[in-house]
Simulated assay, not measured.
Amino acid sequence: MPHHLSKFIRSLYKTKEFIPLHTPTFGEQEKLNVLDTIETTFVSSVGKYVDDFERAVELFTGSPKAVATVNGTAALHTALYMAGVQRNDLVITQALTFVATCNAIHHMGAEPVFVDVSRETLGLCPLALESYLEENARVEGGRCVHKQSGKAIKSVVPVHTFGHPVHLDEIQRICKKWHITLVEDAAESLGSYYKGKHTGTVGEFAALSFNGNKVITTGGGGMILCSNESHGKRTKHITTTAKVSHPYEFYHDEPSFNYRMPNLNAALGCAQMQRLPLFLEQKRELANQYREFFRGSGYEFIDEPEHGRSNFWLNAILCSDKSARNALLEEQNSSGIMCRPVWQLMHRLPMFEQCLRGDLEVSEDIEARLVNVPSSPI
């Protein structure tokens, strides 16, 4: 099977050269936009493209307000700040995620708590979440408190893993019941929908990423999606050094961040947003071809959940066991086709190994068997 997979992937991309996991695609408009910022000298924090990019994301996602940031980690850090997360608080998330999710929690001085994922979505499982809270938490004075430590559980951060939307209705219901703020890590899911709603528009806040390997890119960049205009106004304020507008005075009215996306990056993003529908169409076609190739093969193609529409950011399969996974990874990478395992679970990393966690049986099974295959648009 690994050898047949190599031939199939090369037939998709029509090349004998190295095939990366995911690469950006640029056209003439990207060049023109970036050149415009250079010629006008507005390459940094001032320029029209940042506002235009934010409006384009608002229009596409249906978010009341989008605020551009320098990267996805900064977006999630700010979202947690806006959600009221403070030092020594607890934030529930999944161990099956990229390290940036937990880094943002750590930047707040808070601690991640790991709950299992759903087999259907690869994202936070509502049954595991509710079970953990019923066993380990209580509501006290209108806030959720961890019984053993006495620490506040301030937020739940589900990740739309590889662009597959989690069970948002169920997770939102649990968050409301337990007085916890829902913050979506939608870094991987631009163009994904949950029951007709774009991911990132159900929680109070959400974070997008425009890293070079995402569906669209600004080189480096992120975006905070806010549930209302009021949140959006304050989010914009604290990500731009909390500077009060004035013709010439420098007055800042609170501690804040300098997380502004440069105009040069936003110029790239504006052009990429024009191409996003095409990218999504091409990635869906690629997923359709992978689905058919793996049908009846002994490898399980990770498909979109019934409740949503995925952007298929990274296509993934499950092997029969870890040895089969390793054999597939070795064969593909040695033949010049980049495939990779899923991230090591967060509780296996030294800085998060002491964190609280529930039963992670599904996460551990997926970690042992999952392989991402090349997913650049075709």
Score class of each variant (00 low, 15 high):
Arg295Asp: 15
Glu28His: 05
Ile337Leu: 13
Trp343Thr: 09
Ala207Trp: 00
Ala368Lys: 13
Lys177Gly: 07
His237Ser: 13
Ala267Lys: 00
Glu111Phe: 10
Leu314Asp: 03
Phe293His: 11
Tyr194Ile: 01
Cys319Gln: 01
Phe114Trp: 08
Cys339Gln: 04
Ser323Asn: 12
Tyr132Met: 08
Phe26Arg: 00
Asn265Trp: 01
Phe301Gln: 12
Leu356Glu: 08
His246Ser: 08
Met1Trp: 04
Lys214Pro: 04
Pro165Tyr: 11
Asn288Ile: 08
Ile224Thr: 00
Thr101Trp: 07
Ala95Ile: 12
Glu140Leu: 05
Phe60Lys: 01
Pro350Trp: 05
Arg369Ile: 14
Val117Asp: 09
Lys7Cys: 05
Ser209Leu: 06
Leu12Glu: 06
Val46Asp: 10
Met346His: 03
Glu135Ser: 12
Leu345Pro: 01
Glu285Val: 07
Gly203Cys: 06
Cys355Asp: 04
Lys14Ile: 03
Val115Cys: 10
Gly221Asn: 03
Pro350Val: 09
Ser11Ala: 09
Val244Ala: 04
Ala83Glu: 00
Thr23Gly: 04
Asn211Ala: 15
Gln272Ser: 05
Ala137Cys: 12
Val373Ala: 00
Gly109Ala: 09
Asn372Thr: 06
Glu300Ala: 12
Phe53Asp: 03
Trp178Pro: 00
Val43Lys: 11
Lys154Tyr: 08
Thr40Ser: 15
Asp36His: 15
Thr73Gln: 15
Ser189Phe: 02
Arg10Ser: 03
Arg348Lys: 14
Ile366Asp: 00
Pro2Cys: 15
Leu370Gln: 07
Tyr299Ala: 05
Glu249Phe: 15
Arg348Asn: 13
Lys176Thr: 12
Met223Gln: 04
Phe257Ala: 02
Gly150Lys: 07
Ser334Leu: 10
Glu184Tyr: 15
Ala137His: 04
Val157Trp: 02
Lys177Cys: 13
Ala271Ile: 14
Val99His: 07
Glu229Pro: 01
Lys151Ile: 06
Ile238His: 03
Ala316His: 02
Leu345Ala: 14
Arg260Met: 08
Ser155Val: 06
Gly191Glu: 01
Ser310Asp: 13
Val85Thr: 12
Leu32Cys: 02
Gly269Met: 10
Ile180Ser: 03
Arg119Val: 07
Ser335Ala: 11
Ala95His: 02
Phe257Asp: 05
Gly141Lys: 04
Ala128Trp: 06
Ser118Gln: 10
Val43Tyr: 02
Gln289Arg: 14
Leu129Met: 09
Gly191Asn: 04
Arg173Trp: 12
Cys355Ile: 13
Ser192Tyr: 04
Lys214Glu: 08
Leu124Thr: 05
Met82Cys: 14
Asp321Lys: 10
Gln272His: 12
